[in-house]
């Protein structure tokens, strides 16, 4: 009987990778409720002032394919919504922040309210409508 080990490995790898790919595709870029204990960011950490209504903080790296799409989406929202700013942070050079916020991959986007509280988080390039829906309400 011929050795079929390699063939079995190939089939198993392709099956596992397909499952992972479908799972990742379903979750990628979803904007979810943030769960960070230490959940306040200010101009000191960001290097830029906070937006009055919201700050969209994008963590990026040089070797990140979807960061460009995320940047375009977030810039677009910041440009056409009053009081919303987009801040991009090079994750590689802010590793303490990256560790503190438990950022594992790029792009990761944090939505901060006017006080700098992290209210939403998206891993992977988020969709325009989801970002708009995640913006905190204007304070009276």
């Amino acid at each position: 009987m011929p050795d079929v080990t390699g063939l079995v490995v190939v089939v198993a790898v392709l099956a596992a990778a397909t499952a992972f790919g479908l799972w990742r595709r379903a979750r990628d870029g979803r904007v979810v409720e943030a769960r960070v204990d230490d959940a306040l960011l200010g101009p000191d950490e960001l290097g830029e002032p906070l937006g009055e209504r919201a700050t969209l903080v994008q963590f990026s790296t040089a070797f990140c394919q979807p960061c460009r799409a995320a940047r375009a989406t977030l810039k677009h929202v910041a440009a056409d919504t009053d009081g919303v700013v987009h801040v991009e942070i090079d994750a590689e050079h802010h590793l303490d922040l990256v560790r503190r916020l438990n950022i594992l991959r790029t792009p990761t986007t944090l939505v901060l309210d006017g006080d700098g509280r992290i209210v939403r988080r998206a891993t992977g390039a988020p969709r325009l409508a989801d970002v708009r829906a995640a913006l905190p309400a204007l304070r009276a």
């Binding site: 790296t61 040089a62 070797f63 990140c64 394919q65 994750a91 590689e92 590793l95 990256v98 950022i103 594992l104 991959r105 790029t106």
Partner: peptide
Amino acid sequence: CEIYLAYR
């Protein structure tokens, strides 16, 4: 590419 941040 995604390994990059974990590596750093």
